[in-house]
Design a binder for these strands. Structure first.
Lengths: 230, 230
DNA sequence: GATAAAACCGAGCGAGCGCTCGGTAAAGTA
DNA sequence: TACTTTACCGAGCGCTCGCTCGGTTTTATC
């Protein structure tokens, strides 16, 4: 008995993006928009490539498979993308940019205490990897298939993303909110936990992304050594 | 600044396999042998394949690259392994079997309280993924490159392995040692943390595997909601 | 309807793929 | 020494790969 009907939010973060305080002056995008996930809306050729890469990996996928899946001939596919590598790079950019945009929006959207920002970032990471699992999985697992400067750019984007979390954890340790004698490993462990969601979570499984985010929010607080009563 | 000289063990598990009774040749399995990691000792062709797969993935590696790396011609390589797929399967078996053997040995070797077994299993997982990172990484990331029954066998081995940890967590929740309202997610998160070590840990980095295992032991206890004073 | 751009495709090129054929060289055994 | 087994390789087969050539069809605009 796991998927009980009653949906309850066990962390304060779950209430943060509720629609009540929608009108905030100066915000470019609507409050809480970082946790709205409409269907992916990838261009058809990219969607086909993503599905193929998920099944067989980048090197295990042929350009003919992608074309067939997209309902195109091989030259028809090449009308939209100049190479197989370009498909992978476009998917990778899509993943890294969407995660970054949502993460920075989540951090800006609401109370600014360390714990509030931590909760929102964890929620953002978990929701993203649940809703955009395939995109995130390819971006993570096909790094070594990126050629030339694309690989360095991916790693830079990943480090920038990782710095968001480790910065917050360092802050929390400094202010005594977190008890983490080794912040680097703590940060790495939490990141791994959240990105790992993309490896096993199924959107049609027992948990909704929001339920999962609640549970992971609690787990990550524990892992970070958050003060018990907060 | 980070790799301080003083090596301290922060969990009881760290003391279990102290070096005194390390090498007992001839014994079926000496106490603590599950945490002794001598150099991998893969057959040359397998070692070459592992290095190639790490760099370019299974589908991105050619049989000629493996042969060259092994110091063999292509037919020379095929004298030892009948196909490219057989190389991957052999590496996968090596990884899954070694982890299973070490894990069951760790569980049997020492005090049998839930927390003792939890600590030893976490230590075993962390040490394995630190010392055998490449092997573990390939076994994890090339599942979809396994053909035919090999994939099903890998998944069965993985589930069996995963059950070791989730069984202990269920026990701990039942006896009140762990505070985990959602044991399935807790177990999954901890597994992900430990296997994730293979993705970033470098043996020549700042931390020794033993230091890392100490830190991860503490983190995993926190994540599992282990009672504070234990 | 005329024109131009965008979208698309049948056929196929050169290269590299996994793998094998038919052998030789070295090592073990009597 | 004769024989067998193990370890190995030069050459190359058949095939599929990523990609492109030289077109036709569809759509947008006037």
């Amino acid at each position: 008995m796991v998927g009980q009907g009653a949906r309850q939010s066990t962390t304060p973060a779950a209430a943060v993006g509720a629609a009540k305080d929608a009108a905030r002056p100066g915000a470019a995008s609507a409050a809480g928009a970082w946790q709205d996930f409409s269907p992916p809306a990838l261009r058809p050729a990219l969607a086909a490539a993503l599905a193929c890469f998920m099944e067989n990996g980048y090197h295990g996928t042929t350009i003919r498979q992608v074309a067939t899946r997209a309902g195109l001939s091989v030259p028809g596919l090449y009308h939209h993308f100049p190479s197989k590598q370009a498909l992978l790079v476009a998917l990778d950019d899509e993943a890294m940019n969407e995660l970054w945009n949502r993460s920075t929006a989540a951090l800006a959207d609401g109370p600014q205490s360390v714990l509030d920002r931590f909760d929102r970032l964890i929620r953002c990471l978990t929701l993203f990897h649940a809703h955009r699992g395939e995109l995130a999985f390819i971006a993570l697992s096909e790094i070594r298939s990126l050629e030339g400067s694309a690989r360095a750019e991916h790693i830079a984007a990943r480090d920038r993303q990782q710095a968001l979390l480790s910065g917050i954890i360092d802050e929390g340790v400094a202010t005594g909110i977190f008890d983490a004698p080794h912040p680097r490993e703590t940060s790495r462990a939490i990141t791994t936990m959240c990105t790992g969601v993309a490896q096993w979570y199924r959107i049609d499984g027992e948990l909704t992304p929001e339920e999962l985010a609640d549970r992971y929010g609690r787990l990550c607080r524990l892992t970070a050594g958050a003060a018990a009563g907060s």
